[in-house]
Design a binder for these strands. Sequence first.
RNA 1: GGGCGAGUGGCGAAAUGGCAGACGCAAUAGCUUUAGGAGCUAUCGAGAGCAAUCUCAUGUGGGUUCGAGUCCCACCUCGCCCACCA
Length: 998
Amino acid sequence: MPIKKYNPAQIEAKWQKIWQLKKIFNARDLSKKEKKFVLAEFPYPSGAGLHMGHLRPYVAGDVYSRFLRMKGFETLYPIGWDAFGLPAENYALKMGVHPSITTKKNIANAKKQMLSWGLSFDWSREINTTDPDYYKWTQRLFLQFYKAGLAYEATGLINWCPKDKTGLANEEVIDGRCERCGTAVIKKELRQWYLKITAYAEKLLEGLKNLPEWPQAVKLQQENWIGKSVGAEISFDVIPSASEESLKVGSLRDPSTSVGMTNYIILHGRNGSPDSHTFPWLRKSLEDKGYKVQAPALPNAEEPDDEEQADYVVKKCEINENTVIIGHSFGGVVALRLLERGIKLKKVFLLCTPYSGKFLDNKKRASVTKACKKGFDFKKIKENASDFGLLYDTTDYVVPMSDGESFAEKLETNVIKIKGAEPHLSGLEEPGVLKEVSPSIEIFTTRPDTIFGATYMVVAPEHPLIENFKAQITNFKEVRKYVEKAKQKAEMERTAEGKEKTGVELKGIKAINPATKEEIPVWVADYVLWGYGTGAIMAVPAHDSRDFEFAKKYHLSIVQVVQTDIIEAESAATEYGIVINSGKFNGLKSEEAIPKMAEEFGKMAVQYKLRDWVFSRQRYWGEPIPLIHCEDCGVVPVPDKDLPVKLPNVKKYEPTGTGESPLANMTSWLKTKCPKCKKMAWRETNTMPQWAGSSWYWLRYADPKNSKKLADMKKLKYWQPVDVYFGGMEHTTLHLLYSRFWNLFLYDQGLVTEREPYKKRQPHGIVLAADGEKMSKSRGNVVDPQEIVKGFGADTLRMYEMFLGPHELSVSWNDQGVVGVKRFLDRVWEWGNLVISNKKQVTSNTEKAEKLLHRLIKKITEDIENFRFNTSISSFMEFHNQVKGETVDREYLQVFLKLLYPFAPHIAEELNEMLGGKKSLQLEAWPEFDPQKLSDALTDIVVQINGRVKGKVRLSPEASEDEVKAKALELPAVKQALVQETVKRAIYIKGRLINLVI
RNA sequence: GGGCGAGUGGCGAAAUGGCAGACGCAAUAGCUUUAGGAGCUAUCGAGAGCAAUCUCAUGUGGGUUCGAGUCCCACCUCGCCCACCA
C-alpha cells in the first residue's frame, strides 16, 4: 500500500481548525482540578509582524501548557496585545493613518501568525490594552495610586528624548540613549507625573528573597538597579568665610561688613522677650557662626496685636531679600503679616505658630485667636518668600500639630517635627531648632568612618545651595558659568568614562567638618550627581578614588584617617582598615567605627539608586491620565463612573516638543466640568507610558470581560500567581520591575491575593541570525517564520526553534539546520504509517523497544519539567534511530505520539487519528514510565586502571564489587597492565564503573 | 571600575565528579536517479601505526580527587547588566 506523503500544510490547517472549533484550550475558572497559569509576555503588534524572537517564548509556553493539560492540570495559557506605544503613532504621523487602524490591522496579522504556529492559547480571554474596556481599569488603578499619595506631580530635571519628543523613565534610558529609538537623551526641566516606586524600594528588594524559582541573574539585576546602600546622613554647617577686608583688620569675621549675606531676625511670641526662652542661646549660636542677628523686643507682648508688631519690626529692623525670620509662636504670625505687606524675605521659619486659634489646653488667648481668625493671604505670602520651614514640637500641649499641617498644606511644604527640650520649643537650648535654621549641607556617605579625613565638600551643579548663597559667593559669575555649562551637557557627556573631573570653588563660604570642627572649602563639580543621595558629598580624598583625583588636580589637602594593609602611594586607599587620626575613635576597625561615628555626627540612613517613575508622556497614543485641573479645587480625579477617559480622535498627533501633549490642542476634549465644584476645568493632557497597560495585564486574564471590577476576587484567587512566566532578559528592569511594583501596591490595597505576581521566571536567549548578529532589516539577515512554515510546516519550525540550543541562551538561526528536523518528522510519518498499516496485528513489542520507550518517557517528562527542550528533540531523534528496526504494536506508537504531541502537535494528532484515536491527544493522559523497564538485565560496566579506560565487562547492574573485580581482572588489557603491578585499591560505582588503582 | 555568565570538532551543541564530542548541520565515499535535488549506507577531534592499538585533546597555568569539561585558586578572551551611585 503506498504511503500518503507527509503534507504539513494540509494537516496543520486541519488541526488548527478542529482545535478552534472544539475550544479545547479554553481554561475553566474555579475548576476542581489544580490550576497552572502559564504566561508569555504579550507582544506589541508591530507592522513587521511577529519575528523569530517571539516564537521562542510562545512555543516554549505552548509545549509546557500542552504537557500540563495532559498531566491533569487546569491550565491557563492566555494571550493579548500590548498595543499602545510609539511605533503605531510614528507610523500614523508618516502615513496619516490613525493608530487605531494600523493597530487593528497589525493585531489581525499577528493573530494569524500565532494560529499558523499552532499555539494553544485560550483565545476567549484575548485582551488589548488599547481597548477602552481594558484601559478603563488601567486608569482606575492609576487613580488608586493617586489616592494613596503614590502618584504625584512635580517639576524636575527629567530624561527627555529629543526625537520622540517625550519624557522618559530612568529605566527607559539605556547607556544614555532612548530605549526605543536610540537617540541620545537630554535633561529637561519639566512638570511631570511620577509614580512613587521608591516607596516600594525595600518591598521590591525583600520580595526577591521569596522567589526561589527566579534565576539568580534576574534577581541580581533588579537588586543592583534598586541599589540599596547603607550609610550615614550627616549635616555640615555652612558659614560665611572671612572676607579679604576683614582679614586685613585682623578679625576673623565681622558680620557688619558682610553686605548682602544672610541675616536673621528672631521674633518672640506672646508673653516672651528677646531674653526669654531659647532666644539668647539661639542668637549667640548664630552669631558664633558669623551671622548678623536682630532680635527686637515687640510691643504689648502680653496681649499682642499682629499688625502693630509688624509695624514695629519694619521700623526697627534692617530687612532685605537675604533676611531670614525665625518666628516663634505668635512671632510667626507677625512674620507672615510682613510677607502679606509685600516685604520680600529669603526664608521664614514658623516655630509652633498657631493657625486655627484653638489650643490643646483649652485656655483662652484672645489676642492670638483674634489674629488667627483674620486668616492669611497665602498667595501673597508665597510670592514674597522663596522658602518656608515649619518646625513643630511633638510634645507641645498648646499649639496642635494640626496647625502646622494646615500651614504645610497651604505653603506646599512639610512639617518638620521636633521633640523640644521643653514643650512648645521653649527650652533654654533647642539644638533641634538651631540645626534647622542654620544653613547646612546634608550629605550621604557609606563611609562615616572616614569623616575626619573630609577635607572639602562638593555639591552638584543643580544644588539649591548655590542660588541660596548667591550673595555670599564672591566668585558667583564664575560659578554660574560652570553650572550653566554642566546643565547643558548631555548625561552621556557628563558621565563619559575617563573624563577629567572639573569644578569651581564656592568662594566666600565654608563648611565646618563636624568631626574636626575645621573650616573646609565647598566646591561645585559635576562628578557629584544631583539625582543620587542628597546631591552633595563630603570629600575624603585619602580614601575615595574620585575625591583623590579631584584633590590632586586642585591641590586640596589629603588626610589619611584609615590604616589599610595595602600601601598605596599614588591613589586612594578605599578598603576598610583601622581608624587613625580620628580622636577617640582611633584604633577601631572601619566596621565598628561606621555605626558609632554615624550616630555621633549624624544618623544611619539608607539610600537607593532607584528613582521615582516618570509616568507621563507627551504623546498621543497612550492611556489619558484621568485627572482634571480645576482653578479652585486643584487636581481632581475623574470619578469612577466617568471612566474610561477615552482617547479622543484627533487630526494632528504631532508631538509638540514643548513638553505639552498633542491632546493640549484638542479644545473640545480639553474643557470639562470640575467633578467637585462643577466649574469649568481642564483635563490632564499627558498620557501614560508604554508600560502602564502591561503592569497589571496578567490579572485581567483571570476575568477579562468583567465590567464591574478589574477581575472577580474568587477568580483571581484561583488563578494567581502566574506559575511560569516566559520572557526576555531585556525586561528585567522595565516591565518585570514595574509590574512587581503594581502588584505589591495592589496587594497592600487588598485588590489582589498574592504579594508577588510571578512564581517562576523563565528567561530566554535571543535568536540571532546565522552570522551571529542580531536580526535586523538593515543587516538584511532577518528570517521570516512564515517562510519556514510555508517551506517545512509549523511542526518543523517549532521543533527546530527548540532544538537550536538551551532555552535561556542566545542561539544562532541556521537555515540549513532546519532540514534535519524536517527529515526527522518525515521519518516519524513514515514509521507511523508503517506501524498503522501493518496487516499482521503485532501483539507484543520487543524487549529493546520497551526499554527505549520507557527511557524516552522518563527523559521527555524530565526535560519538559526543566525547560530543557533542546535535549528533548535530540532524545526523540536518538530514540527513532534505535527503534526503527524493532517490532512494535499500535499502542506503542500512540504512547510515542503523546510524547511528541507538545512539540509537534499537528503531525501527532494526524497520526493518532489514523491510528484510530477518537479524541484529541490533548485530552489523553501523559504517559508514565515503568522503572522496571528502564534497564537491561545485563549492562556494560567500565573498567579503568588509574582512571584510564581499559575495557568493559558485561554483568548485571546489581553485580557486587567482587564479581565485577573478578571479571575485570580477566580482561587481557588488565592482565597486561598487572604483569609487574598489583591492585592497591578498587573503587566501584555500582552498575557503572570500576577503577583499579595500581 | 563593579557585578553576573560563558569559553568543548568545520558549525549548533551533549555530558547527576565516572566511557568527552550524544543529537543535528556541513563535509567525504558508495548505492539509487536521465540529471539536479531528495533518499539510503558508511566515515567524520588531532597525531602515530599495516593493524590490534597507543599518545594528545574541553581558553591558559596551578590545585583537590582513585578519577576533573564538571569542584577550588590565579590569569586570558568574549558576552550581558550597572557605572563618577558618594
